[in-house]
C-alpha cells in the first residue's frame, strides 16, 4: 500500500494520545465528555474510568452504546490535512474483578498520576469493546477497520 497503513496510524494514535472524546446519550440527547483512555495491546478494548455520579456513567448505564474520538490535532491550520483521527464505535461495560488487574496494568502504565482516582471506591473502571474504528487521514480519507468477532 502506498500510504502508511491505517493500522499503523491507528496504533500510533491509540498509543500516543492521552485523551479521547467520549460520546454517549441520554434518551436521545447527545452528550460528549473528555476522558483519559488506554488501549489494550490488541486494540479491541479502550479502557477509561469515571466517577459513579457522572452524567456519562448514567448515560452508559441506560444505553451502553458509545463512540470515542481520538485525534492528534494541535489547533493549527495544518491540522486540516496533517491531523489524523480515529472514531471507535462499540459498547461499554463496567470491568468486574477478573479484568480489573489487566485494566490497572494498561491504564495506569499510561496515566500513573490517576492511581488514586482509579483506586477511589466512587470510581468505576470501564472498557469500550470496539466493533469498528473509522480512521481519517488527509482531511477526508476514511478507512473503516472492523474488529473480527
Amino acid at each position: 500500500m502506498e500510504q502508511r497503513s491505517h493500522m499503523a496510524i491507528l496504533r500510533e494514535l491509540l498509543e500516543t494520545q492521552l485523551l479521547a472524546v467520549l460520546g454517549t446519550h441520554h434518551q436521545g440527547e447527545p452528550y460528549t465528555s473528555l476522558v483519559g483512555f488506554a488501549a489494550s495491546p490488541d486494540l479491541r478494548l479502550l479502557y477509561f474510568t469515571t466517577g459513579r455520579a457522572t452524567r456519562k456513567h448514567a448515560n452508559l448505564a441506560a444505553d451502553a452504546r458509545a463512540a470515542m474520538l481520538i485525534d492528534n490535532r494541535s489547533n493549527r491550520s495544518a491540522d486540516f490535512t496533517a491531523a489524523a483521527a480515529a472514531t471507535a464505535v462499540g459498547t461499554v461495560e463496567e470491568i468486574d474483578e477478573p479484568g480489573r488487574a489487566e485494566f490497572e496494568r494498561v491504564f495506569l502504565a499510561k496515566h500513573p498520576q490517576l492511581t488514586d482516582f482509579v483506586a477511589a471506591p466512587s470510581s468505576v473502571a470501564m472498557r469500550l469493546r470496539v466493533a469498528t474504528y473509522m480512521v481519517v487521514t488527509h482531511f477526508q480519507h476514511v478507512v473503516e477497520l472492523h474488529v473480527a468477532p
Binding site: M1, S5, H6, M7, D42, L43, R44, Y133, M134, H138, F139, Q140, H141, V142, V143, E144, L145, H146, V147, A148
Partner: peptide
C-alpha cells in the same frame, strides 16, 4: 498480497 492485521478487516469508507 496486502498485509492485513489479524483480527481487523479493513473497509474503505471514503478515499481522497
Amino acid at each position: 498480497r496486502q498485509e492485513v492485521e489479524p483480527g481487523f478487516r479493513p473497509r474503505p469508507r471514503q478515499l481522497v
